Simulated scan of single mutants.
Amino acid sequence: MTLAQRKRLLMKASPWLLLLFLGLFWELVCFAFQIPDYLFPAPTDIWRSWLEYRPQIIEHATQTLFTTVVGFALAVVFGLVLGMLVGSSPVIYKAVYPLMVGFNSIPKVAFVPVLVVWFGIGTVPAILTAFLISFFPVVVNMATGLATLEPELQDVMRSLGASRIDILKKVALPRSMPYFFASLKVAITLAFVGSVISETVASNVGIGYLMLSASSTMDMGLVFAGLVVIGVMGVVMYELFALVERRMTGWATRGSDPAF
């Protein structure tokens, strides 16, 4: 095996090795200090809770995944359109950007009671919370990608007779795709946060509701099992968009090797 092959193998195995080390360390700490499972469950306690409550966890996780994906999809559509408007017009950028920053500074959990009054307890507040918390990265990254287009490229395109729309379609949008896909990886993780926040406050289904119910009975193994499921779903969705990013914008990182 060559040195390059060993490096690639190490890069692929490093997340699993780190996860294994942390799991063993976690188990050892709980065993050595005899920490009760109702305070801080060991990985084996979490695994037992998963085996015992697997049907219920899967049912609630499916609901959380649904609300997250729907809210995220709305955020992508809204964020893409608004980001294109903000990034392509200096006037709109100056007018809208401060309002977006102020809106994003408000804790989204503060909107949940309002959404409950408007739409009732259930799926809709969770979808809207996921949307509200995840659209900002899409808007900002898309606007940044368009607003930072080099003036030289615009001058060259204009000298070739290109219109403003031509510059947007043929240069600005393709150049902004790395920014856009980077925002998707951030936004999907935030969408999970929004869904779970709403489910803990204003829902009777979902991982957030399951964790709240489990904590009320001091079943911390089930609480941590819910946390692990959320983490796994977040990692899977993140890697999915990372794969799409590599396929769609591989030209942006071609030839680079950030690790070695």
Rank of each mutant, 00 (worst) to 15 (best):
M1Q: 09
L3Q: 14
R6D: 06
R8C: 02
R8G: 01
P15G: 06
W16I: 01
L19R: 07
G23H: 04
F25D: 07
E27A: 12
F31S: 13
F33K: 12
D37H: 14
A42N: 12
A42R: 11
T44N: 14
L51E: 15
R54L: 10
H60S: 03
L65R: 04
V69M: 06
A75L: 00
V77Y: 08
G79C: 00
L85W: 09
V86N: 06
P98N: 11
G102C: 14
P107G: 06
V109T: 15
F111I: 10
V124T: 15
T129S: 09
G145W: 00
R158D: 10
V171L: 13
L184F: 05
L184D: 03
I188L: 03
L190I: 04
S195H: 02
E199A: 08
E199D: 09
S203D: 00
V205N: 01
I207L: 13
M211V: 07
A214E: 02
S215N: 08
F224W: 04
A225I: 02
L227Q: 03
V228W: 06
Y238K: 11
Y238C: 10
E239G: 11
L240G: 15
L243M: 13
V244P: 09
E245V: 03
W251S: 03
R254P: 01
A259W: 10
F260D: 15
F260P: 13
